[in-house]
Amino acid sequence: MSPVPAGCARRLRHHYGSAVDTWIAHVPRQIDDACREWGLRFVSYHDHGHASAIAVVHDAAGTPRIVKAWPETARFRAETAALTHWYDAGVVLATITESSIALLRMIGGQPGGHPVPAGHESGVATAIRDLHARPLRAGNPSTYLQLSQYLTDTVRPRIARRMESPLACPLATRVYNALARGLPASMRGPTLLHGDLYRENALFDQRGVPLLVDPLPMIGDPIFDWAFWVVYYDLRARTEERLALAETASQIDRHHILFWCLMLCLDGLLYFRETQDSRATTMAEVLERILTLRLVAA
């Protein structure tokens, strides 16, 4: 079986470091073994994503499916558990725990889903609301990270570290000071969050219905997902339109959503500046706009 595409290998190394090289070398054999176990025919790799290897396969009836393999068992468990929680048996069709491989439904009949329909952001807002509405079930609490732990152990320390360096431009300092009193709660109960609501993680079926895939699931306040979606779903456009959709769909106060948007924008701006990413300019523009919107909403 052919090795994973060079682009996939490059992204995996960027995400996990050189320690992933051994896994990259062995995963084609694991995917081949999974195909034999499930009676599938390998077609090609789908050169996409940063934390897994993805293959397009056909079952005995010629139906296209996806086989996805993860280097991290914890990530495999969390992602497949979340997708099963939200979509029952509609997305995750089978798993092999020993090799962290899953057989997934092909959404929209092709890798990456059906072409994006007009008015797709309204549909995605409804999809986010529906995910949050699924009651949390009893289970192994260690399957998912807690949002509060993620913020305490990861987000706040890296913001503080970067704020002590030349990365702390006047705009970043202004936002950092605005966040000093902490983040407001949405007054909603904790739910299972998607945690990674970028545009490429919303796949559309042939009816134009979005399914939200590739999560980084956490348990916590739904306001995090709404703010992430407002900022990152399309960093260059329609921020205010998504804010309005988020406020309507979630029934969370706009001012509170904007406060969380500030935190996510600050974290992103400092990262882009540290990595000399050209998106730093765009993020600064988004951050300025959110500051203005927050003043209007106050």
Rank of each mutant, 00 (worst) to 15 (best):
M1Q: 09
M1K: 07
V4M: 09
L12R: 06
H15P: 00
T22V: 14
D33A: 15
G39I: 12
S44Y: 03
I54Q: 07
A61M: 08
E72D: 12
A82H: 04
L83P: 01
W86L: 03
T97F: 09
E98F: 06
R105S: 15
I107F: 05
Q110V: 09
G113E: 02
P115S: 04
P117F: 03
R129H: 13
A133E: 10
A138Y: 11
A138W: 10
N140W: 06
S142P: 01
Y144I: 13
A160N: 15
R161Y: 12
A168Y: 06
T173E: 12
R174M: 08
Y176Q: 13
A180F: 11
A180C: 12
A180S: 15
R181M: 14
L183D: 08
L197E: 01
Y198R: 10
N201D: 11
A202T: 03
F204P: 00
R207C: 11
G208F: 01
P210I: 00
V213Q: 00
L216E: 10
M218P: 01
I219S: 04
P222I: 03
A227W: 02
L235A: 07
L235R: 07
R236A: 12
R242W: 03
L243H: 00
L245T: 02
S250Q: 09
Q251M: 14
Q251W: 11
R254L: 00
I257S: 00
C261Y: 04
C261W: 04
L262K: 05
L262E: 12
M263V: 11
L264M: 13
L264N: 09
L266T: 11
L266V: 12
L269H: 07
F272R: 13
F272S: 10
D277N: 15
A284T: 04
E288R: 05
L291A: 02
L293T: 01
L293P: 02
V296R: 11
A297I: 00
A297H: 00
